[in-house]
């Protein structure tokens, strides 16, 4: 799939032609291209609006990154702004705020990886161990719910829980202790984000592990039990090996997105903790580019982030294939 990447930003017509020639090579075609287009015209017309969307809002914006090589001024417009070569990239690398954003991003994603990632696995094991159907379905319905609640709501709620006038401070004060405002403590920021992510997505994250747990052959458990393996040994020797592949796959894919924090989540809380702890790569681009009008340098950061991010995702997918996994995208493409 990665191989076809360079061929992609084409117009709709040429991609059609390419697909047609690939098809005609595959099997001897009786119909000419024109005949086939006529035959498929309804299907292609139905596809067209969606294809236009992807081209206009996912591929065309890539040209916007030419801004990274310009001294872009809004009032001059794109064509009139001067080319500056790699100056924006030099500015980026010499900006301490950029490096601070890199450090914050890595600190946040790694904290999430270590402390969020295992939670859905544990929760899935717990849910899977429930024998009663009713209880399990009830708990599932409850823990999936927060996934559908938006970040603005969740951040507001956590402010009520952990903020300066929140529940935590109230409880501490009623115990005679000083209050604690977690939402403005820079040192606690990665932990706050991790807590919120656990609340929002740990339940939803169990779905993929539960599916993997279901695919384990029950006979394995039975024969392990007959051989005298107890509950914990069965978990260790049957359950965990059964879901190890999916754990590795998700772990690798998570490593691939290590430069991306939950953007909306961080953006909503950056001002409360201040940019020293709350600035990540995405918010850096937003505040420097859109807010302060430093388009060129911000676009340079965005471009570097996108390239490294894409390379990491592709690399992660390759590694996942290496472990014998299908990878997310290959699976979806079939």
């Amino acid at each position: 799939m990665a191989d076809s990447a360079p061929a992609l930003p084409r117009t709709e017509r040429s991609s059609d032609r390419q697909g047609a020639s690939a098809l005609s090579r595959a099997r001897p075609a009786r119909l000419s291209l024109r005949q086939r287009l006529k035959r498929d015209r309804v299907m292609l017309l139905l596809t067209l609006p969606g294809l236009l969307y992807f081209l206009v809002f996912h591929y065309a914006p890539l040209f916007g990154y030419l801004t990274a090589f310009k001294d872009y001024e809004v009032y001059l417009g794109f064509a009139q702004s001067a080319w500056v070569g790699l100056a924006n990239f030099q500015a980026m690398f010499s900006d301490p705020a950029f490096w601070s954003a890199v450090a914050n991003t890595l600190q946040i994603t790694l904290t999430q990886l270590v402390f969020y990632f295992p939670v859905p696995i544990a929760l899935a094991l717990l849910l899977n161990s429930l024998v009663g159907d009713r209880v399990r379905r009830f708990v599932q319905s409850v823990v999936y719910l927060p996934h559908f609640i938006g970040w603005t709501i969740i951040v507001s709620v956590f402010q009520q829980l952990l903020g300066g006038t929140g529940v935590l401070t109230h409880v501490l004060q009623s115990l005679g202790l000083p209050g604690y405002d977690m939402t403005t403590d820079p040192g606690a920021f990665p932990w706050l984000l991790t807590l919120e992510s656990v609340w929002k997505d740990a339940g939803w994250g169990t779905i993929i592990f539960l599916a993997a747990l279901l695919s384990i052959d029950p006979q394995l458990y039975e024969s392990a039990a007959i051989d005298g393996a107890g509950r914990w040994r069965r978990t260790w020797h049957v359950t965990l090996p059964g879901i190890t592949p999916i754990i590795i796959l998700l772990l690798v894919l998570n490593l691939g997105s290590i430069l991306s924090t939950g953007f909306e989540q961080v953006l909503l809380q950056r001002d409360a903790v201040g940019p020293d702890a709350g600035e990540v790569l995405d918010t850096y681009v937003y505040y420097h580019g859109i807010k302060s009008g430093q388009w060129g340098p911000a676009a340079a950061v965005g471009l570097v982030k996108m390239l490294i991010g894409t390379a990491l995702v592709l690399g992660a997918n390759k590694v996942a294939h290496f472990f014998g996994q299908d990878g997310v995208y290959r699976g979806a493409a079939r």
């Binding site: 697909g19 098809l23 292609l44 801004t67 681009v285 965005g302 996108m306 493409a333």
Partner: peptide, 25 residues
């Protein structure tokens, strides 16, 4: 005709995100 290529065009967008500046422009 062409449906496989169009599908790839759509699926590849899962791999990269043009980013804020590009989308804004």
């Amino acid at each position: 005709t062409g449906s496989r290529v169009i599908l790839m065009v759509a699926l590849l967008t899962m791999l990269f995100n043009p980013g804020i500046i590009a989308n804004f422009l």
